[in-house]
Amino acid sequence: MAGAVEARLAELGLTLPDVVPPLATYQPAVRSGVYVYTSGQLPMVDGRLAVTGKVGAEVTPDEARELAGTCALNALAAVKSAVGDLDRIARVVKVVGFVASAADFTGQPGVVNGASELLGAVLGDKGVHARSAVGVAVLPLDAPVEIEIQVELTED
């Protein structure tokens, strides 16, 4: 039976995807006490990247913003894989966004807003978080954006 968070995803027309398998030697999410840390999540859909390239060159900022939301959805799937129930999320503590950027692109915060907005839409006040948005030269698989999150859980 789906909980309140997954019901909210359904209301938004979103489906929690399967956890993206690791591309190397790491876990998609690790729990430590009341915290879950996700590995960086790429905008994978059905096992592949729909878009590749640098934001501000091959990828528009608006496309990248949508892709950041996909990354956040994948991060929620990773959290669920570690704790079993997204209703255990007390709050999102931190979001870190990496944006593969053309040399003159400076709109990284706007791109990472896609992840922040998705988390807010799904989790309400529990989705409000601290955040970093970092421009980088390249990301795995030539992905335009990568998002990682840290969440605090309710007590067992």
Rank of each mutant, 00 (worst) to 15 (best):
D46V: 01
G56N: 06
G33H: 10
F105T: 04
Y26N: 03
L23T: 14
A130R: 07
P61Y: 00
T38C: 07
A24E: 14
A64G: 13
D104R: 10
Y37A: 09
T38D: 03
T52N: 01
G47Y: 10
V96M: 00
A100R: 01
P109A: 06
V99Q: 09
V96P: 01
V45T: 14
S39N: 14
N74Q: 10
L42H: 05
D18H: 00
S81N: 11
E63C: 01
F98H: 07
D87P: 02
P61F: 01
Y26E: 12
S116K: 15
G97Y: 04
G47R: 02
I89D: 02
V112S: 02
Q108R: 01
E117T: 15
Y37L: 09
G40Y: 15
S32T: 12
K126A: 15
P43W: 09
G127I: 06
A90L: 12
R88G: 03
V79A: 09
V34N: 14
L73S: 09
A103Q: 09
T70V: 15
V99L: 04
V20E: 15
G127M: 10
G33A: 10
V112T: 06
A29C: 11
D87E: 04
V59N: 05
N74D: 09
P17G: 13
D85N: 15
A82I: 04
Q41N: 11
T52K: 13
P17Y: 12
P17M: 09
A68N: 10
G124F: 08
T25C: 05
P61R: 07
A24I: 00
A82P: 05
K126W: 04
H129L: 13
D125K: 10
V92G: 08
A115D: 09
Q41I: 02
G97H: 03
D87Q: 00
A72S: 12
Y26A: 09
S116P: 00
F105L: 02
Y26T: 01
V34H: 12
A72Y: 08
V45D: 11
V59M: 01
F105K: 04
G127A: 08
Q41Y: 08
H129I: 02
A115R: 05
A102E: 14
A24Q: 08
V111I: 11
C71L: 09
P22N: 11
V51S: 00
P109H: 01
G107P: 07
S39T: 03
A29E: 07
D125L: 14
L76F: 10
D46G: 14
N74F: 06
V20H: 01
